[in-house]
Design a protein around this nucleic acid. Sequence first.
DNA 1: AATCGTTATGTCCATCCCGACATATCGACA
DNA 2: TGTCGATATGTCGGGATGGACATAACGATT
Lengths: 115, 115
Amino acid sequence: MLRAKFKLWLNSRHVEGAFGDGKWRLLKAIDGENSLKVASETLGISYRKAWGDLKKAQEALNVTLVEKQRGGRLGGQTVLTEHGKKWVKAYARFRGDVEKAVDKAYERHIGGLIG
Amino acid sequence: MLRAKFKLWLNSRHVEGAFGDGKWRLLKAIDGENSLKVASETLGISYRKAWGDLKKAQEALNVTLVEKQRGGRLGGQTVLTEHGKKWVKAYARFRGDVEKAVDKAYERHIGGLIG
DNA sequence: AATCGTTATGTCCATCCCGACATATCGACA
DNA sequence: TGTCGATATGTCGGGATGGACATAACGATT
């Protein structure tokens, strides 16, 4: 009947939305596909947006999350760096903890209001 | 350098954003002013939006949060009902718990990545 | 050196949300 | 019964965000 929802993200000094669920999902998809193009298709977002998000995250965090390569018979590829993999795992734990806390807090404080 | 941010809200069966930070702040302001108009001015939002938010919350939660009155020398007034006051308090605790959890999870999982 | 599929990037357009206006309505009180 | 200030609603325009297109650039492989 009522559900608690949340959005979670990180701001850097000058960038709103430096990292968040969308970019996290993007990195995960890239890790599985080794391709920015395929990753964007898997997620159902435009390549244009995926590319922009990736660029934004890297610039804002000042970390190289992926290794990009152009050319060749296969056209190119995009793979996660070690830093990128660390970010995926760290954010997953971060988000997981928050999600649990939201559910618990909901039960504790809101659930009683409507039961 | 990096800051964790979050948005929190409640969805009802058919309504996205039935209740959240904005509507919570609105109820708090109404409680202090006993006026929807003054509350909206205090918050720096349009009366139109405040009115719409209030209506949306009440319809979505199916709870009477405020008692509205029109007419009279003072024009009218809007005061919180007991249910409204309970919601303000409950959401405050809900939000407070989540905020603490976000900070803690950030320290635990993200802080180390950039220290 | 010609190819080919991916990465790289600019730009215009649809859409959603909010702010700004514009009015209508109400009704206790003087 | 007229007044007055707040509540009640419709609507239009502007800013932000993402999608749809369009096109350039790249370079390992053949």
